[in-house]
């Protein structure tokens, strides 16, 4: 298999949680490839932010698109070629701020793509402003007196929106992340993984996560339990919150087959006009 690491100099901060995500993604893609998925059939999209730099560090095809729009771009790829496995990387500002609508609608439609949400609780690349997932009181350049907005809970938000696979991982638990990611990519439907990702420069949460994160091996027994434990701040439960079988969008709207040739189109138009 080809080397998945690109030649581009890595400019993430030393200790950035994104390194863990990159390592887990590489591991997963290798495993998928070994299990028979051609590399040419896996593509990615990324938004803009620290998370998006993964596009340059991962030797995979895809679109490094606009801030907030990576999920929409990924949806368009999937609709045009359902054979492709599409992985989307989004930041918390990117996928839950600027582009929240696309994230909600991809979940609602059960679009068959995987969204990896790099949750670092702030806007890292633009010097640490509060994000939709910043904690109350978070101080950044736009909130010098402290953030007064309550954070979303990504897991319950996506459950409500209709994601058929919902999980939470931690960037420092690479094996766990890789294993969940493998399941997510193979899951037929919209897969959402919130990855807790410490930002060493503006929101260093390593100590907090190392203390509180707890891998939950069993799935919650029901949706109510899932919602309850998703909100728990101590321990913070890692694992799969929802895994359900639901019809996917591209199959429901009958996307299949090769496009018609121009001659076939002309014949159809002659017949109908």
């Amino acid at each position: 298999m080809r080397n998945l690491t690109g030649p581009k100099e890595n400019t993430w901060c030393i200790g950035c949680g994104d390194f863990g995500i990159l390592a887990a993604v590489r591991k997963t893609i290798q495993a998928l490839n070994e299990a028979g998925t051609p590399l040419a059939d896996i593509v990615m999209t990324a938004g803009i932010g620290c998370h998006g730099k993964i596009f340059d560090y991962l030797q995979m095809s895809g679109i490094y698109g606009l801030h907030g729009r990576a999920v929409a771009t990924a949806s368009g790829i999937k609709l045009a070629n359902p054979k492709l496995k599409v992985i989307t990387f989004g930041g918390d500002g990117d996928s839950l701020g600027e582009g929240l609508e696309h994230t909600m609608f991809a979940a609602k439609r059960n679009m068959d793509i995987t969204l990896i949400l790099h949750n670092n609780g702030n806007y890292g690349l633009t010097t640490g402003q509060a994000s939709p997932l910043s904690t109350l009181g978070f101080k950044g350049p736009t909130t010098p007196m402290g953030n007064v907005e309550k954070s979303f809970t990504p897991v319950t938000l996506m459950m409500e929106a209709g994601a058929s696979f919902v999980a939470r991982c931690y960037s420092a638990r690479i094996d766990h992340l890789s294993q969940i990611l493998h399941q997510a990519i193979n899951h037929k439907g919209f897969s959402f993984i919130e990855v807790l990702q410490p930002c060493v420069s503006y929101n260093n949460t390593y100590n907090l996560y190392n203390e509180r994160c707890q891998i939950k091996e069993d799935m919650p027994t029901d949706e109510e339990e899932a919602r309850r434990i998703a909100k728990s701040e101590d321990p913070i439960y890692l694992g799969i919150y929802r895994l359900e079988d639901r019809p996917v969008y591209h199959e429901q709207i009958n996307i299949e087959g090769e496009p018609l040739t121009l001659a076939q189109r002309k014949a159809l138009l002659q017949e109908h006009s």
Partner: peptide, 20 residues
């Protein structure tokens, strides 16, 4: 799509995948 923003970004995804 859910908005014009979505529509055009989806369309760019579709042309990337080779469809007009």
């Amino acid at each position: 799509a859910e908005s014009e923003l979505a529509a055009i970004n989806m369309a760019i995804g579709s042309v990337f995948a080779g469809r007009r």
